[in-house]
Write a protein that binds this DNA or RNA. Structure first.
Lengths: 105, 105
DNA sequence: TCATCTTATCGTACATCTACGATAAACGAT
DNA sequence: ATCGTTTATCGTAGATGTACGATAAGATGA
């Protein structure tokens, strides 16, 4: 069990802000996921299959992207019979926009 | 040379907007890179070594993160004698903020 | 010139991401 | 109960990301 010696400022240079923003940014770091979010926002609500129809990707891949977006909080999925109904979570989107907007330009 | 058959909407579901936003988001998808951008913005301008001092990462790793940020356009590096002086590119940051803000919440 | 300082790059190991087909799981309808 | 429909998950192959030490490259100063 080796405890590495940290530099003086190493403990707090990378903050919770950085972690949160990086996590949200990572969820949108793939063009397909941005497209899914836009499509979902435009449609309001959408069954998984409708997204698959419109994306140039296999169903398994789309499902995986949806999982990433869901884990980051960008979308919510509600089970509706044999289907799953997806929509964007506006709170997470607003949070992301707020964090990005707070970066100094 | 195999030409895959695309679905009807597959050509234009993923747009240039999605690519551009995803590229910028990917550059900020690591906490260390967000921290570097913040630190750089706060300092105005910064020599590479000063960033290394403050980050809990090896010099090679910081240099690599700076390269990613530079390739995405978030930072600029100006050679100054034996040193390299870094600063954020406000245009790219504003562009990123504008793209993110344009996402429907 | 030579030693020193600073930064970029190389090589490398390990982890994570991305894509897909195949399959499982859950539901409605017959 | 069985079938068809829809979606999530598994397994996997190949690409990319992340971290580091070692080293090269470039500039300054002795």
């Amino acid at each position: 069990m080796k405890i590495p010696v940290l530099k003086p400022a190493a403990q707090d240079t990378v903050t919770a802000f950085d972690d949160e923003l990086a996590n949200l940014a990572r969820a949108l770091s793939h063009p397909a996921r941005v497209a899914i979010v836009r499509h979902l926002a435009a449609a309001g609500t959408c069954v998984c299959g409708q997204i698959v129809e419109v994306m140039p990707l296999a169903q398994a891949t789309v499902s995986q992207h949806l999982k990433v977006l869901k884990e980051a909080g960008f979308v919510q999925g509600e089970v509706d019979g044999p289907r799953t109904c997806y929509c964007v979570d506006p709170e997470t989107m607003k949070r992301f926009q707020s964090l990005v907007a707070s970066l100094p330009a």
